[in-house]
Write a protein that binds this DNA or RNA. Structure first.
Length: 221
DNA sequence: GCGACAG
DNA sequence: ATCTTGTCGC
């Protein structure tokens, strides 16, 4: 499948250049309601083993959560992990894997931050701007922002803030588990992002899209 | 200079 | 993320 990239840029950059690219791309994030209820959602995840990276994508139908497509792409590691610059290590692999899908999902769910990032350009936002489509981020831990621990009740949430700005939501998906950090990647609202995470949750802490993608990337590595 | 720090 | 066995708890 062909991918149309918006605001494309080079990936072989120095950390300083990458930071500049993030500052430029941040201005293109659009927080707006979804045009229509999504019928498909894809979970994105990546694993690294030795010198190879595996990007995995699992597409599920909504609201059934039936798996309808999946893809894996393996390639060389080109960047180290640097907090704040994760997308320069993982995004290229994710884009390659997306090309292997039979059809573009309505929404993408990445295991990373969206705008809950120092420069509002986490992996989910980066992918979202390049593809100009709805993307949300679901991270297992905090990168930036302050919050109060949500109650230990499924569905409890509290805002993730950076000063006066709300950059995401801290959501408890199950009782007795650590909360997840949900944020908008592009073209959707925070409320919609939180609703999608909760709607795709089963009996685990992680929502099905990213949980399944995580297993796929690891089983293939 | 000292901590914090997605995966 | 990854390296790794058993083990505490519901």
């Amino acid at each position: 499948m062909e991918l149309t990239l918006h605001h494309a840029h080079a990936w072989d950059l120095t950390p300083q250049q990458a930071i500049q690219v993030q500052r430029e791309l941040a201005g293109f994030v659009r927080v707006e309601p979804l045009a229509r209820p999504p019928q498909t959602i894809a979970g994105l995840d990546m694993s690294v083993r030795a010198e190879a990276v595996q990007a995995a994508i699992v597409v599920l139908a909504l609201p059934s959560l039936v798996v309808i497509d999946q893809a894996i792409w393996r390639g060389p590691v080109t960047w180290p992990y640097i907090p704040g610059l994760l997308s320069f290590r993982e995004a290229p692999a994710v884009l390659h894997a997306l090309k292997q899908l039979h059809a573009m999902p309505d929404v993408l769910m990445a295991d990373a931050q969206g705008v809950a990032h120092p420069r509002r350009m986490g992996l989910a936002a980066h992918i979202g701007v390049l593809l100009d489509m709805p993307v949300l981020g679901v991270a297992k831990s905090r990168l930036t922002g302050v919050y109060v621990e949500p109650d230990d009740v499924a569905g409890a949430q509290s805002p993730l803030q950076d000063g006066d700005e709300t950059i995401g939501a801290v959501l408890r998906t199950r009782v007795g588990v650590k909360p997840l950090f949900v944020s908008v990647g592009n073209r959707m609202t925070l409320a919609e992002a939180v609703a999608l995470v909760f709607a795709t949750r089963t009996r685990y802490r992680m929502p099905e899209p990213t949980r399944l993608a995580h297993h796929l990337s690891r089983d293939q590595s």
